[in-house]
């Protein structure tokens, strides 16, 4: 397997000494080039923390992380960001409120001193399904779905190979969620992107990902294919419980739930 991302024994702790909280505890996984890998789990299971460590936002971790064939440390160099980009959960918080779409998209090009800014901005807006009409709007003039498209465009404009997706649809309306997921799916097919998708929504990972890791209390409890998840035949009892919870509220099922 030609691994785009290789993580081995990743640990992330918050706090120090006796009060330290181990948010991620010995997590290991691999993602092949062009694959879409899902990390699911309940709130506080450490899935977003894994993503922040991968992206370089949180430099305090131990273990081995290899991205694009290169071992990564806590601090990343500038070229790393051309390989790996991230889309955040909340499109209302991830766009600078005083900048137009145009200026938000030009910023990464200016940082990396890339030529042809004008053409690249037009292209990427087109790719995410926003026409030139949106180019000079401020974020407050956009809907949630449009904002998330801008955030995706911003992540794509440096033409990365990897996209880290942190619950990209959970802050959106249900009708818009599907549009964004389809957009992400199309972009992956068109550009051969590698995805790591973090979500608590099993339906989303089953639709978006080929392989899924289930996290609980900072550990990966089970890795399975989307096929097996769709057929609802996971091995680990925690995954089964998660599956039961995702179907809807069922009093009988809830009473049998236990902590893992």
């Amino acid at each position: 397997m030609d691994a785009m991302i290789r993580v081995k024994g990743l640990n992330v702790s918050f706090g120090e000494g006796g009060e330290a909280l181990r948010a991620v505890d010995g997590v290991s996984f691999q993602v092949a080039a062009g694959e879409s890998f899902g990390l699911v789990g309940e709130s506080g299971s450490g899935k977003s923390t894994v993503l922040r460590a991968l992206s370089g936002l949180n430099p305090n971790w131990t273990g081995e992380v290899e991205i694009g064939g290169e071992a990564q440390g806590g601090r990343r160099d500038k070229s790393f960001y051309k390989t790996c980009q991230m889309v955040f959960q909340d499109p209302y918080g991830s766009l600078h409120p005083r900048r137009t779409v145009d200026s938000i998209l030009r910023e990464p090009l200016a940082i990396h001193r890339l030529p042809d800014a004008d053409r690249r901005v037009t292209e990427v807006l087109d790719a995410v399904g926003l026409g030139p009409r949106f180019r000079y709007r401020y974020p407050h003039q956009l809907s949630g779905g449009q904002r998330q498209r801008v955030a995706i465009a911003r992540a794509l404009i440096l033409q990365p190979k990897i996209l880290l997706l942190d619950e990209p649809t959970s802050a959106l309306d249900v009708s818009v969620q599907a549009e964004i997921l389809n957009l992400l799916k199309r972009l992956r097919a068109e550009r051969g992107l590698t995805y790591v998708l973090v979500t608590h929504n099993l339906a989303v990972v089953a639709w978006m990902c080929e392989r899924i890791a289930v996290m609980n209390r900072g550990r990966i409890v089970e890795e399975l294919t989307a096929e097996r998840l769709r057929r609802a035949e996971p091995e680990h009892p925690y995954t089964r419980q998660l599956l039961a919870a995702s179907i809807g509220y069922d009093r009988q099922a809830v009473e049998t739930f236990q902590d893992y």
Binding site: Y81, Q85, I111, R154
Partner: peptide, 26 residues
């Protein structure tokens, strides 16, 4: 700690650039 600052960090912007171009205007 807002996401839009995290996003510029992930584009490789230096601290000086983030302070002068993204924090100061606000």
């Amino acid at each position: 700690n807002s996401d839009f600052i995290a996003a510029v960090k992930l584009q490789g912007a230096s601290a000086a650039r983030i302070i002068t171009r993204h924090v100061m205007p606000l």
